[in-house]
Amino acid sequence: MIEEDCAKIKTTKGHQHVAKAFGLSPTRWWNKRQLNAQNTWSAPDHLACLWDDLEIVTAGKGSKHPLFSVRIESLFLALLADNIKKESLGPNGPQELPHWSFRKRILTREMKDDKIPAPEDIIDYVLWYGHCLELETNMIVMKSERPVPRSWTLLQNMSGIHHARKLAERDAVIYGVITDGSKWVFIHLTNQSRYTIKVFAWDNERDQIIGQVQNIIDRAVALYRKIMSRSSLPKPTVHQISRCRIRELPASCAG
């Protein structure tokens, strides 16, 4: 089923359009090392209990239950917090450390800032290791009730960041995840614009999913350490060169 999902992703019109628009190609057969993380992480007891309780509460409703995203958020937050505590990262304050931000959209010179974004333009989580004007993120995450057929939206947003950083001659490697909490689609883009796609199911591949996310967070921490010593941002910035930026969405208001 997982291999079928990967094949299905590559044959969707959306995926083919994005790949053509950004000049992407699949990873060559001899370079399949991407998304093969071997890390292991023992989930704390309180987190394991939360996930068990979540299974009980959402029984029969699966990923369509409003609480199901708690699994996604708790995993991302716990892994990053654990990494930061373990690494004892520098004295600059929490706002300078690798961190998650929420509800973002990518804007390019062709897009209007005041236009209401389509669902495929909304990024639920961005993992920052540096400055937003440099688009210094190595991972974006999207939530979707249909992660396999909608994975082209993830690739589209990843490619916008990848293209902007490549245009500015920066490291353009980026990872992405689109998930409903049950099925997880991971995508990796290399500096050479080659992509790797892997699909995992939470029920029987939880350790692999956790390992992939942990590996990406480890890389974000390593990238953060590389830029810690700089005294100022490069001039011009990635935003100034590409006119691409990641902007926070206004808070939604109900009723």
Rank of each mutant, 00 (worst) to 15 (best):
Ser182Asn: 13
Ser232Pro: 00
Val173Pro: 03
Asp218Trp: 04
Ala172Ile: 06
Ile217Cys: 04
Val185Ala: 06
Val221Ala: 02
Lys226Cys: 00
His188Asn: 12
Leu233Met: 05
Trp184Phe: 12
Val177Trp: 14
Arg170Ala: 12
Asp203Pro: 08
Glu205Ile: 04
Asp171Asn: 15
Leu167Met: 12
Arg165Gln: 01
Arg170Ser: 05
Asp180Thr: 13
Pro234Asp: 10
Lys166Ile: 07
Gln208Arg: 10
Ile174Trp: 03
Ser193Cys: 11
Ile174Lys: 08
Ala220Lys: 06
Asn204Pro: 00
Val221Pro: 00
Ile178Glu: 05
Glu169Phe: 05
Lys226Ala: 10
Leu167Ala: 04
Asn204Met: 08
Gly211Ile: 07
Lys198His: 11
Val185Glu: 09
Val185Lys: 10
Arg165Cys: 01
Ser182Ile: 14
Ile227Asn: 06
His188Ala: 13
Gln208Leu: 13
Thr179Glu: 04
Ala222Glu: 13
Met228Phe: 14
Ser182Met: 09
Ile216Thr: 07
Gly211Tyr: 01
Trp202Gln: 12
Val199Met: 04
Gln208Tyr: 01
Gly176Thr: 13
Ile216Asn: 02
Ile227Tyr: 01
Gln212Arg: 00
Ala201Met: 12
Ser232Trp: 02
Val221Asp: 01
Arg225Asn: 09
Ala201Thr: 11
Ser232Tyr: 10
Tyr175Pro: 01
Ile178Thr: 13
Gly211Arg: 01
Tyr224Arg: 10
Arg230Thr: 08
Pro234Gln: 06
Ile209Ala: 09
Arg206Leu: 06
Tyr195Asn: 13
Ile197Asn: 04
Val221Ile: 15
Ile216Trp: 00
Val185Phe: 05
Asp203Ser: 12
Ala172Leu: 12
Phe200His: 14
Arg170Asp: 12
Arg165Ile: 00
Trp184Lys: 05
Pro234Ile: 08
Gln192His: 14
Asp207Phe: 07
Ser229Phe: 13
Ala201Ser: 15
Val185Asp: 15
Arg165His: 11
Leu223Ala: 04
Tyr224Pro: 03
Ile217Gln: 10
Lys166Arg: 14
Asn191Gln: 06
Glu169Arg: 07
Ser231Gln: 02
Ile217Ala: 00
Arg194Cys: 09
Ala172Asn: 12
His188Glu: 11
Glu205Gly: 09
Asn191His: 14
Gly176Ile: 07
Leu167Glu: 13
Ser193Glu: 08
